[in-house]
Amino acid sequence: MLTSSNAVTPRERSEFLQQVGDLVRQAEELGLSAALSDAPRRRKPGLAIDLQFFRSAADGRLRPVSGLKALRPLGDSWEASDPRHRWGSVDGAVTFEMLRAAPRPASARPVTAAMARPVGAAPRGAGLVAAAVGVRCANARDDVQTVQLLLNLCGEARRVVLPEGPLKPDGAFGRKTADAVMAFQHAALGPAAVDGRVDPGGTTLRSLCESLPELLAPRCLALLCLRAADADITEFAPRLREVLAARAIHTPLRQAHFLAQIGHESGEFRFRAEIASGQAYEGRQGLGNTQPGDGQRFKGRGLIQLTGRANYAEYGRDIGREAALLKQPQLVETDPALCVDVAGWFWGKRKLNALADADDLNTLTKRINGGFNGLDDRRRLLLRAKSLLGI
């Protein structure tokens, strides 16, 4: 239910509804559906809306999401976006308010540009292709694979009938890909637009990207991490959604930086543990490797490469499994839930959301890696993530 006091102006009401729209879109990014609650209640001066949230269960039915803990990322984002905003739970519904009373004190958390959804942002996917794809074009592997994946998405959305069915996204531009590009142009843009080319920022690319799913859908993650196996993406996607919600990684900029960093650290979801043996960490007191064999036993594992006995112990304590992880540290690699969760834990422990809000790739990389190893690749993944988010 939407309620307002008599003192609210039409402009304030319009502003509030736009902010609620942003909130609902953020909920959708977290895999939640929102519905109005019709429970009447008395209000403070200002505007308020009561919402109920649902999540799809394995049987396809919508199940209500109860408890503020699961919805805290939405509440934190709501309060961060405007000093007049408050949220809370009343009679099973979640209330989001815009008060007309005195704003929160100046000592409260400031609003940053990264905490709000960008206004006038670029179309999603605008920067996914670096050079032209088509006959007598550069046809770089990543660009061709991106176009192939986008064409398959458009085929699934029934925007085009691909002449020979879904393409194999192998990054090789051949006759099947050329025919599919022209079929899409004819179906989506009209006969006059058929030239067999997909140019960076061009009309064909923009139209292809109209079928992009939300960021954490497996098909979209495949566009972010082109080298990832479908099985790994399918396994990690729901767990990533949970971690982003639990660690308040709920703004587009935070999500872009988080996914870029774990994408690089894991070789685009291909490696759940570092390839090296870990012998180089042997005897490293700073990592807590005090016993013979600790270097190899506690080598880097998980999507952000947890390393060292001390870090395994700390993570284990925080999740109530210290003894198990010290006895079987390989669980961080073999258990998909832990493999993803440890990345969110590390992100939260190092307070990396603040660096993501500042769009500070260099400092963020140093905080994770201890230096700037792989900075160019992290930047490449960050640009792709931003493009998929439209920022």
Rank of each mutant, 00 (worst) to 15 (best):
G127F: 11
Q279Y: 00
G125R: 15
I249W: 00
L287T: 08
R61L: 09
I249F: 00
E79C: 15
Q185I: 15
N311M: 06
A101Q: 09
A7H: 06
A276L: 06
V147N: 13
A58G: 00
E79G: 10
C220L: 07
G371E: 12
S56L: 08
D195K: 10
A237S: 12
G196L: 02
A93E: 01
A7G: 04
L381F: 10
F236R: 12
S56V: 13
R384C: 05
G46T: 03
R136S: 10
L32S: 14
P329W: 03
L36E: 15
R254N: 00
A310V: 04
A58W: 02
A114D: 09
D179G: 09
H85T: 03
H264M: 03
E12R: 09
S37Q: 05
E15F: 07
P118I: 12
D199N: 04
A116E: 15
K327T: 14
D360W: 05
F258M: 06
R61A: 12
A131C: 00
P110C: 05
S14A: 13
D22S: 13
A183N: 05
A57Q: 10
R309N: 10
G278R: 07
L221C: 08
T112D: 10
D142R: 13
G344E: 01
P238I: 01
E28N: 14
V160P: 09
R254K: 09
P163Q: 01
P110L: 01
C154N: 15
S266Q: 02
L62M: 09
L51A: 01
G316Q: 12
F298Y: 14
D142S: 15
G67C: 12
R378M: 12
A385V: 08
D59P: 03
R41C: 01
R136P: 01
L389W: 03
S207A: 14
E97P: 03
V342P: 02
R301L: 05
L364E: 11
S4P: 00
W87K: 04
A27T: 10
S66P: 00
R72W: 10
E164N: 11
F271Q: 11
G165P: 03
A34P: 11
L167F: 00
K44S: 12
E274R: 06
R284Q: 08
S77P: 07
F271M: 07
F16Y: 12
L74Q: 03
L240Q: 08
L167I: 04
N6G: 06
L71V: 04
R367W: 07
V8R: 09
F53T: 04
S89I: 03
L68N: 13
G60L: 00
P83I: 06
R321F: 00
R272F: 06
D335T: 09
A7L: 06
I262D: 04
R254D: 03
H264I: 02
L383A: 14
T204Q: 05
A106T: 08
V111D: 14
I391T: 09
G171M: 03
Q52R: 14
A183C: 02
A256K: 04
T251V: 02
S77I: 04
V342T: 15
Q291K: 15
P123G: 11
D59V: 07
A114T: 08
A248T: 05
G300Y: 13
R43H: 02
G371W: 05
D376L: 13
Q291C: 12
A192P: 01
A116C: 14
L382P: 01
G316F: 12
V129N: 01
G202T: 07
L208Q: 06
E156R: 14
H257P: 00
R100F: 03
L331W: 02
R247S: 03
F184R: 12
